[in-house]
Structure formats: structure tokens, C-alpha cells
């Protein structure tokens, strides 16, 4: 890549990360003033998703910045993850119970969610098909009347 294009791309990525920071700090302010029990970043995420949906922010304004941060996302939570060294409890009996319970809960959740979603999906598609067919029928009958 030519030097100029590369420089422009880096500048663009940095500016876009600043936009993401602005949304993050809006989340921080909202949490500070309302005391909502939500992570500031999640509020920033909801705000940005809403702004994209309602076309208040163009997706081009964040594409490269978000892409860059998401590519390195894992790196950013390695420092808090290392905090595990202050919690040797994980290797105790309670730690083992905790892990087994999480495993069982996850398996049950996958089972119940996939089974029920499949039933709901069939119903949703059936209703949609029926609507489509009725829609076509209406057009056809209006045709006959003309």
C-alpha cells in the first residue's frame, strides 16, 4: 500500500476509535447521572446501534475503527482475566461445583432453547406464508373485479 494511503487509513481508524470513545463516554455519563445498573459500554453499544439503525451515524464513520478494535478485542480483556491469580478458590470444592453447575446449565439452556425455537420458527414461517398467500389472493381477486 502506498505510504500516503496507509497514513490516511491509520488516521481514519484513530478518528473512528475516537467516535466509539465518545459513545462509550456517553454511556459513562448516563450511568453516572442515572445510577442505572448497566455497564457503561453496553449503554454506548445500544446508543450506537440505535444511531446506526436510524441513520444518525453512517456505518462508514465507524467501520474501520470498530473492525480494528474487534480484531484485537481478546487482547483488551487479558489484563482483567489475569486477575484470576488473586482467586485460588477456583481450585477448591466450591470452584469445582461452580464449574459443573455452569456446564449443566449451559447444556440445558442449549437443549431447551433449540427445541422451543424450532417450534416457534415453524409457526412464524407458517403464519408468514399464510399472509403471503392471502396477499396474493387479494391481488388476484382485485384483478378479476377490474
Amino acid at each position: 500500500m502506498p505510504f500516503f494511503a496507509l497514513t490516511m487509513r491509520i488516521i481514519r481508524t484513530i478518528l473512528q476509535i475516537i467516535i466509539l470513545y465518545i459513545f462509550y463516554y456517553m454511556g459513562v455519563l448516563i450511568v453516572h447521572y442515572t445510577g442505572l445498573p448497566l455497564p457503561a459500554s453496553v449503554i454506548g453499544l445500544i446508543l450506537l446501534a440505535a444511531c446506526l439503525q436510524f441513520k444518525l451515524v453512517k456505518v462508514d464513520y465507524i467501520r474501520e475503527g470498530a473492525g480494528f478494535l474487534l480484531a484485537f478485542m481478546t487482547l483488551f480483556f487479558i489484563p482483567p482475566m489475569i486477575g484470576i491469580i488473586d482467586y485460588p478458590e477456583l481450585l477448591s470444592l466450591h470452584g469445582v461445583i461452580l464449574m459443573i453447575a455452569v456446564f449443566l446449565s449451559t447444556m440445558f439452556t442449549i437443549f431447551i432453547t433449540s427445541t422451543l425455537s424450532e417450534k416457534i420458527e415453524k409457526k412464524e414461517l407458517a403464519v408468514k406464508e399464510k399472509k403471503d398467500r392471502e396477499g396474493e389472493g387479494a391481488i388476484e381477486s382485485s384483478h378479476i373485479h377490474h
Binding site: L20, A40, G44, I62, G65
Partner: peptide
């Protein structure tokens, strides 16, 4: 950087 990265999940 985790904060803005989570915001980026909107993308």
C-alpha cells in the same frame, strides 16, 4: 480499550 471495543459490537 475494552469500553470502546464493546461499543464497536454495534457494527
Amino acid at each position: 480499550l475494552l469500553g470502546p471495543a464493546v461499543v464497536g459490537l454495534a457494527f
